[in-house]
Every structure is written in structure tokens, then in C-alpha cells.
Simulated scan of single mutants.
Amino acid sequence: MLTLSLIGIGCGDPGQLTRAAVQAINAADLILIPRKGTAKSDLADLRRTICADVLTNQTTRIAEFGLPVRDAGEADYHKGVDDWHDAVAAAWSQTIASQLGDDGKVALLIWGDPSLYDSSLRIARRLDPLPRIDVVPGITSIQALCAAHALPLNDIGEPFLVTTGRRLREGGWPQGVDTVVVMLDGGTAFQSLDPARLHIWWGAYLGMPDQIVMSGVLTEIGPRIVAARQDARERRGWIMDSYILKRRP
């Protein structure tokens, strides 16, 4: 029977790997590493570095595969994502079949944690044949962002909301909360908000050597974040960032 392990590897710092993650990596017969194009080659490089650091099982093989790109021009967002997941599942299935067959242990190293704004669990359930699925939790970008700023996420006894840049831009500030965590923001959705009373804690490339963090009153620091984000994206060809907004009295 085929077993698929989705292993959370944190946000870029190999030191964030748990002992359970190291054990799962070494238990695999095959480790899949996705390639997302030359602009994001350092994401694949980091996965290879992690394997080089912790993989002691000499029989474990590593295979790379091209990750399909989502059609950003699809008018129906959910249909576009659904079609993309089908394409990714097909790529996984083809690579596993050619490298391992239908019996053995295959692992994917998941950025952050497989449970938070990551599609690997949904994609895994589309594989044919359907494997047994194991999950090894990892440090999320939210935890890494709070640690980078030495920031407690929630105020005393108060809730917080985790959302996306698209939802924040379309719906505005969510009702009933004063703390919002924003992920998967392809732009700078905080610019769509009234900045009065808002503080921001922002971070890009969290856990990686060129990590960038900035914080302050949104009216003052917001333009600096926009400029820093644009500069970083032009230099590297991609950016992975998240931020926390708190509304103050």
C-alpha cells in the first residue's frame, strides 16, 4: 500500500524541523521536490538542503517534478483553484507511479504546516490510487512572524482572525475582532483599509537568511512596506510575506 507523508518543514529555517519531521523524512522511500520555475528555484534548493542535512537513510530517493501553474486569468476563482488542484494531483500521481509504483512510502516537504492555507491535504485526496495519508505538523508563518517581532498574537482573552489578502480587500475589516492575520496577499491589501488606529507587523522570507521584518503605525510604516516589498520582489523574482494588523483604541 502507498503511504504519503506530508511533512511540515517550517518557514525556511532548517532549525525549525521537529524530530518527528526528521524521522518521517528518513522513513520515506521517495521524497518529492516540486519545481516552481527558475524564479522560485531557491524554494527547491532549500528542500534539497534540508534533505542533505538530515537524510541518513541511504536508500531514500529524491525526485523533482514540475509543478503546474494556476491559471490566474480564470474568472471563477474557485474553479481555477479546483482545476489547478486536479493538475497538481495528476503530476504527483505520475511522478509517484514512475518512481515508486503503488507500494511504499513517499514524502512531500510542505512549507509551514499542511493544515494552514496549504492545499496539499486536498490534493492528496485526489490521488489515484488513494494513499494512506500521514501528516507531520510544522511551524507556521504566523508563529515565525510573531517570533520575529516578539509579539503575542492575541490580546488578553480576545480572539483573532486569519484571512487572505483577497478577502480583506473585498470585504474590508472583519467584524468582531481587533487582530487580523493576513496571508496569501499577492499585493498589499492593507492599503484598502482606513489606516487610522491600525498597527502592522510585517515579515517577508521568514526564517530565511534574507528575512525582512518591519512594524509600526500603519500610516507611517505602510508606504515603507510597500516600497520594500516591491524592491525585494524585483530582486528575487518572488516574495512570500504575511502580516498582522491590530486595531487600537
Rank of each mutant, 00 (worst) to 15 (best):
D185C: 09
W201R: 11
S242P: 02
I200Q: 02
V213F: 04
V182G: 05
V182H: 03
R197M: 04
P195H: 09
R224L: 13
S215W: 03
P209F: 09
V217H: 08
D231W: 11
I244E: 02
D194T: 14
T179E: 01
Q175V: 08
W201Q: 08
E220L: 05
A232E: 04
G237T: 13
D178G: 14
S242E: 11
Q191V: 06
G207I: 10
A189G: 10
I225A: 05
D241L: 10
V226G: 00
M208Q: 15
D231E: 12
D241A: 13
A227D: 09
F190C: 02
S242T: 11
S192C: 08
L245P: 02
L245D: 01
P174G: 03
V177M: 08
A227N: 07
R233A: 10
P174F: 00
G207M: 10
P174Y: 05
R236Q: 12
E220P: 00
R233I: 06
G237S: 09
P209S: 07
T179D: 08
V180T: 00
R235K: 15
G216Q: 07
R235S: 11
A228Q: 09
Q211M: 14
A189K: 06
A227G: 00
L245N: 02
D210S: 14
Y205Q: 14
R229G: 13
T179L: 01
I200K: 01
M183C: 04
V213D: 04
D194Q: 13
L218E: 02
Y205M: 15
Y243D: 01
Q211I: 12
Q191C: 02
R233L: 14
R236P: 00
R229A: 11
R229T: 13
V217C: 01
Q230Y: 00
P174D: 05
I221C: 03
Q175N: 08
A228C: 07
R229V: 02
D178H: 15
A204M: 13
E220F: 02
L245R: 03
I239A: 14
V213R: 10
M214C: 10
G176S: 06
T219I: 12
K246M: 11
R235V: 01
R233F: 07
K246W: 07
P174V: 00
D210T: 12
A196H: 15
A227R: 12
T188N: 12
D241V: 06
V226F: 06
E234V: 08
Q211E: 15
M208H: 09
I244M: 06
W202F: 14
R224N: 12
A204E: 11
R233T: 12
M208K: 14
G216T: 04
G203D: 08
V181R: 04
M240I: 09
G176M: 05
E220C: 03
V181P: 00
I239K: 05
R236I: 11
A228Y: 04
I221T: 10
G176F: 06
L218H: 06
V217D: 12
W201Y: 15
T188Q: 01
G216P: 04
K246N: 07
R197L: 07
V182C: 05
M240K: 04
G207Y: 13
G222M: 03
V226E: 03
S242K: 07
L184I: 07
V226N: 04
